[in-house]
Computed example of a mutant assay.
Amino acid sequence: MFTIEHDFDATVITLVDEGAPYLQEDVIVNAFDDCVTITQFDARLNETRTITLSLSQVRDLGAALDLPEGSYQLSKPDGTAR
């Protein structure tokens, strides 16, 4: 399950794990104009962890989900590999 909310400065996507008996904490994705942050609570450390991706890293990640093993460099804004 997931939710999508449009805030003033970001689109916020929350991913809720509805899987097996051991569920992971919710993942919150904030999409800003210049970056994307991914946040998840770490119960082992009792703290929230956040990583920040540039928009080009997000583009590369999206392309990587559909490509076989290998090394790639995207050259076009539409995400096609060369």
Rank of each mutant, 00 (worst) to 15 (best):
Q73M: 04
V16P: 00
R49M: 08
Q40T: 12
S75C: 07
L65E: 09
S54G: 11
Q57G: 10
I28W: 00
V36G: 01
F2H: 04
D60F: 01
T48N: 12
L61N: 05
D66P: 02
L61Q: 13
D34V: 07
Q57K: 11
C35I: 00
I38R: 06
S54T: 15
G70K: 05
V12G: 09
D34C: 06
F41K: 03
V27Y: 01
T37F: 02
D9H: 15
Q57R: 10
F32H: 15
A20W: 14
A20I: 09
D60H: 03
G19P: 07
T52Y: 05
I51E: 10
D66Y: 12
R59P: 00
E18S: 15
N46E: 14
D9W: 12
K76N: 08
R49I: 07
I28Y: 00
R44V: 00
H6D: 11
Q24E: 13
A20V: 13
E69T: 12
D17N: 13
F2Q: 07
Q24N: 14
T37G: 01
A63G: 08
D26Y: 06
A64S: 15
L45M: 10
T80F: 03
I4C: 01
I13W: 05
I51V: 15
G19M: 05
L61H: 09
V29S: 06
A64P: 01
S75V: 08
E47A: 04
T80V: 09
T11F: 04
T39L: 05
R82M: 06
E25D: 08
Y72M: 10
K76H: 13
Q24H: 12
Y72T: 08
I38T: 04
I51C: 12
E47W: 00
F8H: 14
K76G: 05
T14K: 10
L53S: 02
I51Q: 10
V16T: 15
A64I: 02
V16E: 12
Q24K: 15
I13S: 02
A63L: 10
T50N: 09
G19K: 13
P21Q: 10
Y22W: 11
V36A: 04
H6K: 15
T50A: 09
A81H: 11
